[in-house]
Amino acid sequence: MLPILQVGPVAIQTPGLIILLGIWIGLSFGEKTCKWFYLQPEDLYNIITIAILAGILGARLTFVLNNLGAFAIKPLNIFSLNLDLLDPIGGLLFGALAILIYIQRKKINGWDLLNSVTPFLAIMNISIPLANLASGNGFGAITNRPWGVNLWGAKRHPTQIYETLAGFIILTAILIIIKRNAISRYHFSIFSIFIIFIAAERLFLEKFRGDSVTILGGFRTNQLIAWIVLAIGLILYIKIPHKNESKKLKT
């Protein structure tokens, strides 16, 4: 666990650094793979940059609107660099809206886009648990297994490591599937396969988490969401490809 990297007088937040590295590697990687799905690298860069900027602006705007009283005293705090002053749901909505506007203007097929960003998302799926490993977040449930790690006052499942390994397996599987052109008949299936994989990952590994949010009956909320996403992914994989069989992967 290394939440802060002290470089002289500068304290760098390691989890944030890992996420940034993930974005950079994901973009570099996506640049090479996006052509397979009929998307130009500059469009991929534009879309991800616009999504991040719109997401941050939207997250801050929503946070400010939800907490107007706190900002009324010091309005300049709206421009504070503090990342805690962001509303994630607002950020997601604004980011998604910005992407929709961009692809409509550029006449980019939505499925092509989703396939193009799949390798990027697969890399982010590795960098997030690595960031959790640095911060100590996303910790595991208490265990007496020999591979348990001492964290937060107890021996726990190393869930961050489980999730990182799962992320590598998913990335490898995605790349193998693309490379082998195994799904060329259903070229946009790669995104649905990816969401099947990550939903299955979350469904399985959530059991070992020690920070799960539960609802009535002791069910873990993330597992229920993952099951719904898994069902959507399977439906997409089975049903939708029939409408677009002719398009081949450009490998």
């Binding site: 299955a200 469904l203 009956g217 002791g218 873990r220 597992q223 993952a226 099951w227 898994l230």
Partner: peptide, 20 residues
């Protein structure tokens, strides 16, 4: 089958709030 196994897994993963 996958979805059914998922539901069984969710059922076996239940915890009481005290332990989480």
């Amino acid at each position: 089958i996958v979805l059914l196994v998922g539901l069984i897994w969710i059922w076996t993963s239940r915890v009481d709030a005290q332990s989480i």
